[in-house]
Nucleic acid binder design. Structure first.
Length: 272
DNA sequence: CCTTGAACCTGCGGGC
DNA sequence: TGCCCGCAGGTTCAAG
């Protein structure tokens, strides 16, 4: 469910509402997520202030006072919601934080593909879950030359390649299709053949991610911001989830296909 | 290495 | 109405 823009929106919302709050009490209602929440999680987090909220790839890191940070991944269906009153626990509310200032933070994840772990703050980048990650798409490191090199050694189609978090992080199934449309690149193009248009693709990826962040992300089914509000970038989709609809650019028909098990949307006329 | 497909799990919508 | 199938903003693992 969440790609970089959604995770960044959640991070920013948490920063605004719970930064500097002290974690007064933690209730772990269910710990069997993609990786189990450690047995001592609540004890180690209780009593500590939230000093900063960071994001790396699709992970949120709540940095605590002291050596640790809470590493959170939302998987496909995870939510982090801040409330002003004690929540009545509902199905799939796995962790509930009571914070100073009368705030509550709820981690809800129906499919349980998410993660909530404690990691040493200085070791975050070295953690096995994060150590293989490529550059942030909005950072300088993600340059035309870098992407061209990365694409050049791949034989498969360009769309799954840009979704590979080892090449570049944060691009998921929605924004991969959208970025390729903006760059005018057919998603079936072999990655090595798209390498010559890497500059265009870098700009398209950055542009679509920035625009989506500005809109608070995309709400299709269940993604919501930490305030509980929906995002609205879904109204800006050019191709995603628009099979058989009219291409806004050429009037042709948007097509769908399946690549590496994921739905891909594109306009065959605009994307050569 | 790179690629693909299956697996993880729950809920929802469509077709019959 | 109810059931079965397929599908969903992700990641990891095995196997080719």
């Amino acid at each position: 469910m969440p790609e970089l823009p959604e995770v960044e929106t959640v991070r920013a919302g948490l920063e605004k509402t719970i930064k500097n709050a002290v974690i007064e009490k933690v209730t772990v209602r269910r710990r069997d997520l993609r990786q189990p929440i450690p047995a001592d999680f609540a004890a180690r987090v209780t009593g500590r202030p939230v000093m900063a909220l960071r994001r790396r790839a699709k992970y949120v890191i709540m940095e605590l006072d002291g050596p640790d940070g809470v590493l959170v991944h939302l998987g496909m269906s995870g939510k982090l919601i801040v409330m002003d009153a004690e929540p009545t626990p509902t199905a799939h509310d796995h962790v509930i934080f009571r914070l100073s200032g009368g705030k509550w933070l709820v981690f809800n994840d129906p499919r349980r593909f998410g993660i909530m772990l404690l990691v040493a703050r200085t070791e975050v980048e070295k953690h096995p879950l994060l150590s293989h990650l490529g550059p942030e798409p909005l950072a300088r490191e993600f340059s035309t030359a870098y992407l061209a090199r990365g694409l050049a050694r791949r034989k498969g189609p360009v769309k799954p390649a840009i979704m590979d978090q080892a090449l570049v992080v944060g691009v998921g199934n929605i924004y991969a299709s959208e970025a390729l449309f903006l760059a005018g690149i057919d998603p079936r193009t072999p990655a090595y053949a798209a390498a010559e248009r890497a500059g265009k693709l870098v700009r398209a990826i950055r542009h679509v991610l920035r625009a989506a962040i500005a809109s608070g992300g995309s709400t299709l089914r269940d993604y919501v911001r930490s305030s509980g509000d929906a995002g609205y970038f879904q109204h800006e989709f050019k191709v995603y989830d628009r099979e058989k609809e009219v291409c806004f650019q050429c009037g042709g028909q948007i097509q769908a296909l399946r690549q590496a098990g994921r739905a891909t949307y594109f306009c065959a006329h605009c994307q050569g």
